[in-house]
Amino acid sequence: MKSRSRSMLEKSISAMLSAMEIYNKPDFKYREESFSVLCINAWELLFKAKILSLSSNKIASLYAMEYRTLKSGEKSKLSRPKTNRSGNPMSISMFEAFRIITEEFGSKIEKAVIDNITALSEIRDNSIHFINDDLLLSLKIQELGSASLQNYANIVKSWHGDILSRYNFYLMPISFFRGFDEAPGIMLNPKEKKVLDYIGKIEKTYDDDDISSYNLTLRVDIKFQKVKSDSGLPIQYSTDSTATKIIITELDISEKYPWDYQNLTTRLARRFKNFKQNNNYHSIRKVLETDEKLAHKRYLTPGSTTGIPKIFYNPNILKEFDSHYEKS
């Protein structure tokens, strides 16, 4: 049975693939708007899958909480889930999910990622005002979208391993759909111009020479060139034909060991009032890292046991620190 976090991750990937498929259709009149909606949906599900993974798949970790007003007129001391019109618990927003991941769990996400998502959200929220035939706006959406796909693939790989290797994350260059030389001039309406101005202000804060793996926008250039292909079929060789093959995927590992060093340290600081990130902490942690039930080493090259590994932790490791520190 799939865990909640894995099911939500798979939904996120499906949403992003749908966004690409719609954008890359030869003739689709609502291309940019549909892409923006599905792309933002994919990001929100990805963030929520991460929270579930970091919270031992507790669905309550995604509830939007509130302090209700009592009959006396005072606010309750205990928070309860907000409910929607049907009475079901409401979920946190994408931006609140981002805050929880970065602040409460201590996971680092590059600023370019959230700036890119914010810009795409602005396009999604204002899509009803867009002029679909405008080349300038369409090009800007593609630049944001191309960067968003690259950022998404990089974060998924960082959090869950190389699970997207079978997909090609790209948007078909806009030149396939429209002729640049024949593009008619068109006046943007005020609301549309405000969106482009907003994106332009954000772009000015980024250096064109930045070599980071994460980007706000990406400009796509294309040229056609004849090439020779010497591609072949990959094969797998095993010296033991009678051995039972067991495959453990990167996704299985990331579910069992969802925390990295920063996540662990942040949670310990919130759990214990006398916790300090010092040599004593590092000594305790290094001993616990030898227990395969609590920690897993992931090397840069799959299957390799050389080099400097990155260590991931099972949330159960928290209990092992209870005898060393005082709970808050």
Rank of each mutant, 00 (worst) to 15 (best):
S12M: 13
L137H: 14
E292S: 09
R285T: 05
F180V: 13
S34W: 06
L62M: 06
T301P: 02
I235D: 11
I163M: 01
F312E: 00
E44D: 11
N84I: 07
M8T: 14
S328W: 00
K194E: 15
E292V: 08
S231G: 11
G307D: 06
E74G: 05
G73A: 05
E21K: 12
I247M: 06
T306F: 07
K310V: 09
S79R: 07
M172H: 09
A15V: 04
M90Q: 13
P184F: 00
K256T: 12
V227I: 14
F180Q: 12
K157W: 01
I308P: 00
I247A: 08
H129M: 10
R124G: 06
L164F: 04
G87P: 13
A295D: 03
I311W: 05
R124L: 01
L318K: 02
S18T: 12
L136M: 11
F105N: 01
L196V: 09
I131P: 04
D134E: 07
Y214L: 02
A153Y: 03
P234Y: 10
G73P: 00
N154K: 04
K82P: 01
A112V: 04
A183T: 03
A15K: 07
V287T: 15
Q262V: 07
K228E: 15
L139S: 15
L268I: 10
S72C: 13
S18A: 14
F35K: 02
L9H: 09
S323M: 06
T266N: 14
L54Q: 03
I174W: 00
W43Q: 04
S304K: 00
T306Q: 13
L251T: 06
D209T: 13
V220P: 03
E320V: 07
T83D: 02
E250F: 06
I22Q: 08
I253A: 10
L38A: 06
Q150F: 04
R99T: 04
K297N: 08
H129T: 13
I202E: 12
Q277Y: 14
M8D: 13
N126A: 12
S12N: 14
L300G: 08
I186W: 06
L139A: 14
P302C: 14
L70F: 00
A183K: 05
R219A: 15
G161K: 03
L144F: 03
I51W: 04
V227L: 11
I246H: 00
L318V: 02
E21P: 02
S304E: 14
S158H: 06
S254I: 04
K48Y: 05
G73N: 03
T83L: 15
D115W: 04
E255T: 10
A183N: 02
N41Q: 13
Q262C: 11
E122Y: 05
E44F: 04
N274T: 15
D291M: 11
I248K: 00
A97W: 02
I51M: 07
L300Y: 14
L70I: 00
N151V: 01
